[in-house]
Nucleic acid binder design. Structure first.
Lengths: 143, 143
DNA sequence: TCGTTAACTTGACTCGTTCAAGAAAATGGG
DNA sequence: CCCATTTTCTTGAACGAGTCAAGTTAACGA
């Protein structure tokens, strides 16, 4: 994979790739931990650098729901979407609602040339009990 | 508006509300600047606090595209979406693609109870020329 | 094998945001 | 209208994800 992207093959990069494949939607900190099970001495910087080049090369995808730190996944190329739990932050994959990427067309593109439509579904995961907040009850009543 | 949400009416909050109305999609720093034109002595903390309570009360909406700092807008209740320029970060409103909020239904909700579908369209705004690299320079610069 | 160049290590640093303690001011009862 | 209560604001420090910079190491091509 790395050679195919014209990237040097280094042990930190291999370990990061493996970590992302083995821990979908993990954040950088978790990935550093996973990488260090294989290479105990890697620096956090090496992981940050590797994630940046892998993301730029398109070998991993970076996602960052509002209020979350950056997370990474290896499922790429299909522009699938995500459902995020408001309570515990859990993330699950959701197939594209309509079809090929970009799967949606804006009703009015405002003059922008759009190349991607990113969808995030917000809700509660099966393991989190319903919450009672001012915002959520307002949404239940009006939204 | 504030009384309707059972919030105390304070000058910082009024100024923050006005600033958000007058500067849609502005980030916190810009809003602090706008608020200080009216109240030169407000602390940044008062603005952060006001934005949090106004957001919680549903009087303003917080948006945060990947790689951006938090931004705020006063158009609420219609779950409209946004198109973001990869180059300069400009944001424009886009009406909901299908209908009422939530305007989209996940193909498979993975057991989550979904209450909102958030859509972000990525592309280039009319003022930004096509870029030399596929990678997003704005994301690199700001994210 | 060697030299060049990219990648990694180390450690300091930035910046948006939050925390904490005390001062100020907004509402409600007298 | 004024005071008491409670929230909100000020001040200043702290936090944490992520970045920068200088020097060392290691991948790859000749």
């Amino acid at each position: 994979m790395l050679r195919g992207a014209a990237l040097r093959v280094t042990r930190p990069r291999l370990a990061v790739l493996r970590a992302v494949h083995g821990h979908p939607h993990a954040d950088t900190d978790a990935l550093i931990g996973a990488v260090r099970e294989e290479l105990p001495k890697v620096s956090h910087q090496a992981v940050y650098d590797s994630l940046r080049v892998l993301t730029t090369a398109g070998l991993v995808r970076r996602i960052q729901p509002s209020g979350s730190v950056a997370r990474y996944e290896s499922r790429i190329g299909d522009n699938h979407h995500h459902v995020v739990c408001r309570s515990c932050g859990a993330i699950a994959d959701v197939d594209c609602a309509v079809g090929e990427a970009p799967c949606l067309t804006a009703s009015d593109d405002r003059g922008f040339s759009i190349d991607e439509a990113e969808v995030v579904y917000w809700g509660l995961c099966p393991d989190c009990p319903p919450e009672r907040t001012a915002a959520s009850s307002w949404k239940e009543a009006h939204g």
